[in-house]
Design a protein around this nucleic acid. Structure first.
Length: 251
DNA sequence: GCACCGCACTAATGGTCTTA
DNA sequence: TAAGACCATTAGTGCGGTGC
């Protein structure tokens, strides 16, 4: 279900909201009647849709396209809050707070910003790379009736399991890890999930704060930057060894 | 106030799969 | 087997968050 198919289905009036994707199975015959669609491709599409009935909560949140809420922030929010209803509750609480506690006549911009940033961290439970700007974006999203309707419709079609990450002791616990290049034994998502289970943070870019770079074939600028900063670089086999060590030989 | 860090976002590219 | 589409990934840019 890529860009072109979505555009085609949208033009046909079959997709007006994200939840409509999960109602496509009722249109099997209609899809089959379209040029370029045969049994196999229709079955594959509908099977792929059905396989997403219990999506990863962080991935679903990222997919909503809320401003400032990308892949990393979505994961941080779900780690802190556990599920999507809790996120909505936090966003609504932040909206209530900002309405009840506007910038005072005597309050300067800097203290006001600090107060809102702290309220955002307290209400959403995220302290790293999270402040009032992201909280406002979430509050704005849930304050818009159309968004709430789409949200409720979508959650009527899918049931994301509670977002829980069980961590084990490892030599990368508390460290920042970056993956680059082509990973041959796991997907990028799997690699990031493994890093989380090892207590590490999977970042997207290399900086002086990066502790470890896991580089597969085809690594480019990140590899070069890591070398310039003297950051430890290992290959996928080295990462597998760390996993095996943490999980007692079975990764 | 400023510099740095890290994330969001976009465009481009190569590999894989399905159709015709 | 060529063409078309999706997916995973990269590099680059802009901007918000953080800490001094």
């Amino acid at each position: 279900l890529g860009v072109k198919t979505i555009a085609q289905f949208f033009a046909l009036g079959w997709l007006e909201s994200p939840a409509d994707i999960f109602r496509l199975r009722a249109r099997r015959a209609d899809i089959l009647a379209l040029e370029g669609w045969q049994d196999k491709s229709v079955d594959n599409l509908l099977a792929a849709v059905e396989s997403k009935r219990a999506p990863d909560a962080a991935r679903l949140l990222f997919g909503l396209g809320i401003r400032h809420v990308g892949e990393v922030t979505a994961r941080d929010l779900m780690k802190a809050l556990g599920d999507l209803p809790a996120l909505r509750a936090a966003a609504e609480a932040f909206h209530a707070y900002r309405m009840a506690n506007p910038q005072g006549d005597e309050e300067k911009a800097s203290p006001f910003k600090a107060r809102m940033d702290q309220a955002a961290k307290d209400m959403f439970g995220v302290t790293d790379q999270f402040g009032a700007t992201v909280a406002h974006a979430l509050a704005d999203f849930f304050h818009e009736p159309h968004n709430v309707a789409v949200w409720e419709d979508l959650l009527g079609q899918v049931t994301p399991p509670r977002y829980e990450v069980e961590t084990v002791a490892s030599r990368v616990a508390g460290k920042t890890v970056v993956f680059t290049g082509k990973l041959e034994t796991m997907s990028r998502d799997e690699a990031k999930a493994q890093a989380e289970r090892l207590g590490a943070k999977a970042a997207g870019s290399v900086s002086a704060k990066t502790d470890l770079l896991v580089a597969g074939p085809g690594a480019g600028s990140k590899m070069k930057k890591a070398a310039e900063l003297g950051i430890e670089v290992i290959d996928e086999a080295g990462w597998a060894a760390i996993m095996a060590e943490a999980f007692g030989g079975g990764a």
